[in-house]
Amino acid sequence: MTIDTLEGQAPPPAARSCKPGSITLARHGEPALSRKVKLHSAGYRDWWGRYEEGGLLAGQVPPDLLKAAAEGAGEVVASTRPRAVETARAVCGERAFATDVRFIEAPLPPPQFPRYLRFSPRTWGVISRFWWWFFDHHQGEETRDQAKIRAHEAAKALVKMADEGQDVLVLAHGFFNGMVGVELRRMGWKLVRDEGFRYWSARRFEKR
């Protein structure tokens, strides 16, 4: 897999086996940027840009299960977005992890509604995702079909690592993790633990 950066100093576990390892897709922790605002479409575009550049809300503690997954993984990979990198640091401690741009979130360009229509960022996220997915509304950013190709390539890279016998942990984003999960199932991987898509949640896949 293409590695953009490597964080930490401690080497990953070296153990390998002939049986494929598991693949765990985890969502980042809660970001610091507040969602308690009402925005028009241009305001939401600006808000999303700041969300993409921001890190985590202070004071969060990663779940023990997620930290255990990092300890047992032969490879830990994070999206290059700050909120994912900070999540990986919180989960891994001194453990080294890779970052890979292929795991960034799919874009959320909002449709150009009249300025008097104001919604919360959560509502805008639903609206924007719907327009992006069903109406190919991308405004020059990554399209749905391009994101599908990226998800397929990301899934193939994870399978290649897991086929070496090591467990793999990904710390990234809710929707794109879901797209990668779809590709994993198409490749014959079974979802064996599902914590949903909330912050710090994880979904574990194993080879059938």
Rank of each mutant, 00 (worst) to 15 (best):
A58W: 04
I23A: 07
P109T: 09
K36C: 06
R89D: 00
A90N: 09
S22D: 13
K19C: 06
D136R: 06
A58G: 07
E141V: 03
V101A: 15
E153T: 10
M1T: 15
T5L: 14
T24P: 00
A147Q: 07
A15R: 14
D136K: 03
E141K: 08
A78G: 08
T143V: 02
K67Y: 06
I104S: 07
Q9R: 10
G74D: 07
T80Y: 09
W48K: 10
E206S: 12
W189T: 03
I3L: 11
D4Y: 13
P107E: 09
E94V: 00
A84M: 09
F113H: 05
R81N: 06
R208H: 09
K190N: 08
L171I: 15
G178E: 11
L169V: 11
V192A: 10
H138K: 03
H137W: 15
L158P: 10
D4N: 14
R185C: 07
F197P: 04
G72V: 01
T99L: 07
K19T: 11
S120R: 07
L33V: 15
G93Q: 00
Q60T: 08
S34P: 05
F176G: 11
P11W: 04
L158D: 11
Y116M: 14
V170Y: 08
L57W: 08
M161N: 02
D194G: 01
R118F: 05
R115M: 03
K67T: 15
Q146S: 06
E30L: 03
L108Q: 11
T2R: 13
S120Q: 06
F197C: 09
T24R: 08
E141M: 03
R122S: 03
E30I: 04
R81Q: 13
A58R: 11
R208M: 10
R115F: 00
T80P: 09
S17I: 07
V168I: 13
R203D: 04
R208D: 09
E164S: 12
T123D: 06
D163K: 13
G174M: 02
P121E: 05
A42C: 00
S120G: 11
T143M: 02
M187D: 04
V77G: 01
L57H: 09
A78M: 08
P11Q: 04
A10V: 02
V170I: 15
L184G: 04
R50Y: 11
G74R: 08
G93T: 01
I127Y: 14
E195S: 13
G93K: 00
D100L: 08
R203V: 03
R185L: 05
S34E: 10
E75L: 13
P62W: 15
A162N: 10
K67W: 01
D136P: 02
P12H: 01
P63K: 13
P82I: 00
G55I: 10
V180P: 02
T123C: 05
V168S: 09
M1F: 06
